[in-house]
């Protein structure tokens, strides 16, 4: 169990490292490449969950095909437009992390307190599979609701752009 916990720790710390890199780089291509590494890490995460087929498909389809298409379109931009992206770690105010941290803390505490007795707490900390099982079994309705709420902005965006198109035609 301890090996799995260590490997999960390593994978998740790599996730955070490359996530921060996407903010740190000022060049669009480099930001994109760190997203690409995130995608590969997702495949590694699937391997961790013993979903080997899913990992291979993730790398073949997402990394090998779709992201290359994005890279293609980035290459067609002039170099000056790619350079001036001003997202820096120092530019992000620490205040933004306070509500996010609070929310995450509350979520973790509430989840940890609410772990039923048929899940062992040690396993729950180290194994992402157990967390997934638990979330799916106990909180499926909440997740469903969250997905529904998150899809609202997409619908709104769609309607917004559709109206703009219609007004242009008029």
């Amino acid at each position: 169990m301890i090996e799995r916990a260590i490997s999960l720790l390593i994978i998740s710390s790599l996730f955070f490292f490359f996530l921060l890199l996407t903010y740190y780089f000022r060049h669009f291509i480099y930001q994109f490449l760190s997203i690409l590494v995130l995608m590969v890490l997702q495949g590694v995460l699937f391997l961790y969950l013993n979903a080997e087929f899913l990992a291979a498909v993730q790398i073949i389809v997402y990394v090998g095909a779709i992201l290359i298409m994005f890279l293609f379109s980035l290459f067609l931009f002039p170099e000056e437009e790619l350079k001036g992206i001003k997202t820096d770690v120092s530019r992000i105010s620490y205040k933004t992390f306070i509500p996010i941290g609070l929310l995450v803390l509350l979520l973790v505490i509430s989840l940890y307190r609410a772990v039923p007795e048929n899940y062992s707490k040690q396993e729950f900390l180290s194994d992402i599979k157990v967390i997934g099982n638990f979330l799916f079994n106990e909180y499926w309705f909440l997740i469903y609701l969250l997905a529904f709420i998150l899809s609202l902005p997409m619908v709104a965006l769609y309607i917004f752009f559709r109206r703009e198109d219609a007004s242009r035609n008029n």
């Binding site: 990394v63 090998g64 290359i68």
Partner: peptide
């Protein structure tokens, strides 16, 4: 590993990044 052929395809896809 059981997924020999698929792994080869995946690595072929990753090898493209070196060239591009």
């Amino acid at each position: 590993v059981n997924l020999g052929v698929l792994l080869i395809l995946a690595f072929a896809g990753l090898g493209t990044y070196g060239i591009i």
